[in-house]
Design a protein around this nucleic acid. Structure first.
Length: 269
DNA sequence: ATTAGACCCTGCCAGC
DNA sequence: TGCTGGCAGGGTCTAA
């Protein structure tokens, strides 16, 4: 469900309901997630929420004593609800707020996590992450230099968080289509011009999806329960066997690095 | 050091 | 109708 635009959409959705209020207490119904829910989170009592941030696909909830680092995995979501709504089967964690609402984390596959850190710069999950895709550090020049000598196929290479964060399976296929680059090419075969174009398209596609409230494929909903609308704009993702919107050639699919990859053989070279 | 693969977990859908 | 296999938006770990 969640790629970077979905996380950013969630961040924006929950922010006004949380900043300036307190986390009164935390209810953990299922601690067995990717990693066990951190003890410090379990123990929170009446902690003021200072800010809601994001790094890569991690939500950062700043309290006066440290940060909650949340990840939604493959199937997770967070919603702000009135406290009295009964939790469902996969509603694993509730952050009960001082305003009568609750930040409720739902995650059928339980690949998500809720970790704690006193020091963001020293947090294990954040320490080795590459630049943000929408920041200035992620440039054509940066991508071109990193690609020199790389034999890995471009698409799985783009999804490596040490290179750049936040380019997940949907947006990797989409941005390569927009750049007219075949996902199977070795990363080292990128020209400088292609690297410039690819970076520009990654930024454009991600920004556009954030504007649209993310991509709703199955069940992604914004924090207020509305779907995202970017799915309507997908060019290749999930469209195997359907005609390319540009040239009409049938979209193909291939597994690269265990992940389905979609492309148009005629448009992409 | 780089790269490919298995794995964590549940739900859903197509095909038999 | 009911079963089975394959697949799913992510990330980490191991082993070649």
């Amino acid at each position: 469900m969640p790629e970077l635009p979905e996380i950013e959409t969630s961040r924006r959705g929950i922010e006004p309901h949380m900043v300036g209020y307190q986390i009164a207490r935390v209810i953990v119904r299922q601690p067995k997630l990717r990693w066990p829910v951190s003890e410090q989170i379990n123990a929170l009592k009446n902690s003021p929420v200072l800010s809601i941030g994001r790094r890569a696909k991690y939500l950062l909830i700043e309290l006066d004593s440290g940060w909650i680092i949340g990840h939604l995995g493959m199937s997770g979501s967070v919603r702000v609800l009135p406290e009295f709504i009964e939790p469902g089967k996969h509603d694993h964690v509730d952050f009960v707020l001082s305003n009568g609402k609750v930040l409720r984390y739902t995650d059928p596959r339980r690949f998500g996590s809720w970790l704690w850190t006193d020091d963001l710069a020293d947090s294990g999950v954040l320490m080795h992450l590459g630049p943000e895709p929408l920041g200035d550090e992620f440039s054509g020049e940066y991508l071109f230099k990193k690609s020199r000598g790389k034999k890995t196929k471009i698409k799985p290479w783009l999804m490596d968080n040490r290179l750049v964060v936040g380019v997940g399976n949907i947006y990797a296929s989409e941005s390569l289509f927009e750049s007219r680059i075949l996902p199977t090419r070795p990363a080292g075969s990128l020209t400088k011009r292609e690297a410039d174009l690819l970076v520009a398209e990654i930024k454009r596609v991600l920004a556009r999806s954030i504007e649209q409230g993310g991509t709703t494929l199955k069940d992604f909903l914004q924090a207020d329960g509305k779907p995202g609308y970017f799915a309507q704009e997908l060019q290749v993702y999930g469209r195997v066997g359907e005609p390319c919107r540009v040239c009409g050639t049938l979209i193909e699919s291939e597994k690269l690095g265990q992940r389905s990859t979609f492309f148009c053989r005629r448009c992409q070279k």
